[in-house]
Amino acid sequence: MMTRHIAVVSAGLSSPSSTRILADQLASAVEARLFERGEDVRLHVIELREHARALADNLLTGFPSGALAQALQTVADADAVIAVTPVFSASYSGLFKTFFDVLEPGALEGKPVLMGATAGTARHSLVLDHALRPLFSYLKATPVPTGVFAASEDFGSNAGGRLAARVDRAAAELVALLDGPSARADVPPARKLQGSTEFDPDAAGFLSFDKLRG
């Protein structure tokens, strides 16, 4: 039986955190998809808050130590990465960025990465495309087409189905990428408006240019 190693990187600062909750949901969905294919799974969770001081030391000395060195090696050795960050000042957190800054060059090259982000409001949802996707593209990783953003209201009981649909779609895409970039995913179809996997500016309360002009 093939064993897949998935590194789960969570940059949440509190315990528990919504970032870790989303990371766990993504990991569980990927694990379930791989089990369906008859593959064994090893999830390796890395809580960056536990390595904050070591990351600062790494920036100053140029060398990782102890548990941080092991965490960096875990990401380098993984078949795929799930990376989730809280949003600060409309971008990924400094802790999140520092971790990927100190990875060895080429550690993510060709590696599938499922991106996730959390924030208090849906107005930050574009962080996936304007911050995270360029970061992982620069690192020569292979980001999955669907990133997963979760605002505070997405964790409520009334919105859980919409978040679950996005999580399931992204997990299917990550699993497909494990077979190579040209593999076709058994991906649930995207739904529009309620339950959409895409950001809907009208539903979020934004005015289009045409409405402003009129």
Rank of each mutant, 00 (worst) to 15 (best):
R133S: 05
L43C: 10
L114V: 05
G214A: 10
F63G: 00
F88G: 00
A159S: 08
M115W: 12
E31H: 15
G110H: 08
L68M: 05
T61W: 06
A107T: 01
L178W: 14
F96I: 00
V84P: 04
D40P: 05
E31P: 08
A52V: 04
V144D: 04
G110R: 10
R133V: 05
D168G: 11
E39L: 14
L193A: 09
R123Y: 04
K97G: 00
F136S: 05
L60S: 11
S196L: 03
F149C: 06
V113T: 03
A107L: 03
T74V: 14
T19H: 06
R4F: 06
L193D: 15
S125Q: 11
D24M: 08
A119C: 12
L13M: 09
M1Q: 12
L135Y: 03
R4W: 05
S89V: 05
K211E: 08
T74M: 12
G66P: 09
H51D: 04
G66T: 07
A78G: 07
L212Q: 01
L55E: 02
A7E: 06
T61K: 04
G66W: 03
K192R: 15
Q70V: 15
G147F: 08
A27M: 11
A159K: 14
I21P: 01
I21S: 10
R191P: 15
R4E: 07
V187C: 13
A176L: 13
D168T: 15
R162K: 11
E153D: 14
A7H: 02
A78T: 01
R37T: 07
H51I: 02
L13Y: 03
F63V: 13
P189T: 13
V81K: 00
A7G: 03
K97F: 05
L103P: 02
V144H: 07
S182V: 10
L207V: 04
L55C: 02
E31L: 08
D57H: 12
R169T: 04
A69P: 13
R133D: 02
S137Y: 09
S17R: 01
E104P: 03
L68K: 03
P188K: 09
P105I: 01
G106T: 00
T146R: 11
F100A: 05
M115E: 10
T146K: 13
S125P: 01
S65Y: 00
V8F: 12
F209H: 01
R162N: 13
D79E: 07
L132C: 07
K111R: 06
L13Q: 08
L177D: 11
S65F: 04
P16W: 02
K111L: 02
S137I: 13
K140C: 11
D186W: 02
L193K: 15
A56N: 05
A90T: 06
M115V: 12
D168F: 12
A141I: 13
A170L: 14
Y92V: 00
A141H: 09
T121P: 00
A159E: 15
G116W: 08
A27Q: 10
I82W: 08
G110A: 07
A90F: 14
D57I: 15
D24E: 13
S28Q: 14
V87M: 03
